[in-house]
Design a protein around this nucleic acid. Structure first.
Length: 260
DNA sequence: ATGACGGTCCAAGACCGA
């Protein structure tokens, strides 16, 4: 089974690219972030025609996440618990049955948090606290649990072209890294880092010729519970997608697992 | 040294992103 994450930066602006990639790669489960539209305006028919079941958690204009799956959904959960005043659509989770048992896939669009002197940074940290609580509860189930998405977090200086330039940004500073370390220390494995020591960037800014200069960062992750990590076979970053026509600023990251 | 992006709202430019 192959499970992928991709921040597409607008599903309606990116539809042709997404259809082409799905048709070529045919991943089993895909988490999309920044669909930037409401559920009613998500282009369901075109994606369903490629053999996918679809569940969305959309929002007008910004944010929004979706799960696509060739396997039927047993369960769907929308939204991150813990703050009733939070109206941003940033989490959707699906539960799937395979021949070798259940797989739970949670797809997130973690807040960016910049600028750090605004209310956006404490929102990010609070969101990460709530996520850690959520993940701790999921880990108690002792299932294969795959937490994927745009984490807006650079795990180490090795995951950026210029650690000094990024240090202090909401994506790469002590408060954010501390929350991410709590997640890792619960037993969630960074799939890419577990299988490769290459830099493997997943985002290149539209500005400043970042792609041309390979000035990237790695912020899109697959984090695995012990039961999921045990079945990890490999991770592939679809870097070529960034060089295609009308690209997103993020590329897909795909994990292969020994689930039937 | 300078200028250098793209999507969404919706119809001009603000807001957002990282």
């Amino acid at each position: 089974m192959r499970i992928a994450t991709w921040n597409i930066n607008g599903i309606n602006a990116r539809l042709e690219s997404v259809l082409a990639w799905l048709d070529e790669v045919k991943p089993d489960i895909v988490g999309l972030q920044e669909i930037k539209t409401i559920d009613e305006k998500f282009p369901r028919e075109e994606i369903e025609a490629l053999g996918y079941n679809i569940e969305t958690h959309g929002q007008k204009g910004f944010n929004g996440v979706a799960l696509l799956s060739r396997v039927p959904f047993d369960e769907v959960h929308r939204g991150l618990p813990g703050d009733d005043s939070d109206e941003q659509a940033r989490l959707i989770e699906g539960v799937f049955s395979t021949e070798t048992g259940v797989v739970r896939v949670c797809n997130i669009y973690l807040p960016n948090g910049n600028p750090v002197d605004s209310e956006k940074f404490p929102y990010k940290l609070g969101w990460m606290d709530r996520l850690n609580t959520y993940v701790a509860e999921r880990l108690e189930l002792e299932e294969p649990f795959v937490l994927i998405g745009d984490f807006n977090l650079i795990p180490t200086g090795h995951d950026t072209h210029d650690a000094k330039a990024w240090w202090g940004d909401a994506l790469f500073r002590p408060e954010s890294l501390e929350k991410f370390r709590i997640l890792a220390n619960m037993g969630m494995t960074d799939a890419l880092r577990a299988t490769s020591s290459e830099p493997s960037y997943t985002f290149w800014d539209f500005q400043g010729g970042a792609w041309r200069r390979n000035a990237g960062i790695r912020i899109d992750h697959l984090m695995l519970s012990p039961h999921a990590a045990d079945r990890l076979e490999g991770v592939r970053v679809h870097k070529d997608v960034r060089g295609q026509d009308k690209p997103s600023d993020h590329v897909p990251v795909e994990g292969t697992f020994a689930f039937a």
